[in-house]
Amino acid sequence: MLWLGVAYLGALAALLITSLWMQNDFTGNIERVWTTENFQTLFTVDVYRTITLRTIGIAALVTLIDAVIAFPIALYMAKVASPRAQRLLVIAVLMPLWASYLVKAYAWRGMFSSNGPIAWVVEPFGLHSPGYGLFATTVTLAYLWLPYMILPVFAGLERVPDSLFEASADLGAGSWMTLRRVVLPMAFPAFVAGSIFTFSLTMGDYIAVKIVGGTTQMLGNVVYDNQGAANNLPFAAAVATIPIVVMLGYLAAARRTGALEQL
């Protein structure tokens, strides 16, 4: 436990220290001079704000899409399906996790290609494939992280006792009313738990957006371009602190809903 803490927090602390150094633009070597220049650039150059907001927007949208799709599936799995069907469905939900991330992302690249299946389906209506960009990125990420939303929601719904459904019906509530007033409030912490996965995974992603994002950049790409290509580790470290701060805020908010006990 102690070593886990040291390794984990130590790495983060090292990251923070690095972000306060600077890089020689010409040789690419790190110069260990204390400076807040990286953070100044981060806050004063508009493009980084745009990219941060775009990344948060995509993460929120992916979370929302996953929540909307996951709810009916999880509800069916937890309350309607027979025990046998339930087992099969859990396997079906888990199955995509067995396939490689890259295979799934490239599958969507094929889907959105200008002569891919989507183009083929919409062409009779005089439309074109939306192509690579924000839309394709959102769809691909929502697809990739869907199981991480379904499973916590399924677990959360399973904990809702059947007797509550009966009680609700006895008191004269229709199925809509029961869903809205009984099931959703009880399942809410499960949604928050699932959203922590979908939100944080999207915040840090840079591969899917490279494959289907066209010219779109997310925070992960800025980190990658600065570390992987330009070798500007200090600036990359400064950029990497953004998702950490956003996630800390998100986790603090999630804690207030009591969702963390569901994990």
């Binding site: 803490g5 040291v6 390794a7 927090l9 130590g10 790495a11 602390a13 090292a14 220290i17 690095t18 150094w21 020689n24 040789t27 070597n29 790190i30 110069e31 260990r32 580790l233």
Partner: peptide, 17 residues
């Protein structure tokens, strides 16, 4: 923690110019 941070900082960041 401090010692490990320093060790990381010293080794992970390449040569100084």
């Amino acid at each position: 923690a401090c010692a490990s941070v320093l060790a990381l900082a010293a080794t992970a960041c390449g040569t100084s110019s």
